[in-house]
Amino acid sequence: MELLLQQVMTGLATGSVYGLVALAIVLIYRSTDVINFAQGQMAMFTTFFAWMLLDGSVLGHHIHPMQFWIAFTLTLVFASIMGALLERIVIRPVEGRPILTIVIVTLGLFAIFENLATWSWGGIPKAFPPPPEIHVSGITFFGDGALDIGPTVISYHDLTIMLVAVGIMIALYAFFQYTPVGLAMRGTAQNSVAARLMGIRVGNMLTLGWALSALVGAVGGMLIAPLVLLQPPMMMGVLLYAFAAAVLGGMDSAPGAVVGGLILGIVENLVGTYTAKEYIHVDWFGPELKLTAALLVIVLVLLVRPTGLFGRRTLRRV
């Protein structure tokens, strides 16, 4: 039982990262109707940027390595600008075109980012430092220790991943729910013609959507980088799980993306643990297939609810 709870806890931590990236994907999908297959590589790219600042080697020149949170913030700024520019230059011209066209464009971005990262920073994996310890009123954030919660132990890093993820989700929720710009973005996503008639500059809303999404992705990348080594294919696994999470929760549901991410994190962990040789004695299934198993879960869910757990059923009008 304790092992189960432990695995669930760890699963929740990785699941929060999947949820974050899934949130970024859903954000773009809801505001611009685009499925951004390059999301993971964009996050990877911005994480490399952060690494560059932290390591002090900016493309061959040496600078003083930065304090973690300064680098973190600068990276967020960089990510937002990058996202905004991408929307303006690459996505805007194909806006309104059929879905496949846009899919290919994002796949092209995927290839560009992956290769550009390898070109700039090399293919050798690098270690990404975790955030430094902070002590706030007796509670330690980040750092190497662990917290005991009942029968389980959760590392500080995992704990803060979850907290940061939740924090971002709350911030986004507040933004969309309570600010005029957030409201305008929601409206634009539903009906861009009406939005224009309200005086909303739809183009700016789209750009903002991409900037936000890149920002969220950047956070996800920096949170998970200490756990996996930083290399160009780093985000591939995360991206695919994030996609699966977004689909599982329903492509147009932000809470769905988060829930989907958590579920997948847990499932992945449980399958990884409980299908090892000591638990089941079949040869044809095992921890190596945990990716397959998680994805089987998705397919099964989609069969029952084709638009995801929380997705809206689209009306079929004749």
């Binding site: 499925i35 879905i99 695919l240 977004a246 044809w284 095992g286 084709p306 995801g308």
Partner: peptide, 27 residues
């Protein structure tokens, strides 16, 4: 099963298929 899925959902489901292939081949 693909009959039930459209657009992005089908894309991701088939992506899942592609992802699993190497794992199954290894296994």
């Amino acid at each position: 099963p693909a009959l039930r899925l459209t657009g992005p959902y089908l894309a991701v489901a088939t992506l899942a298929l592609a992802m699993s292939t190497p794992q199954i081949l290894y296994k």
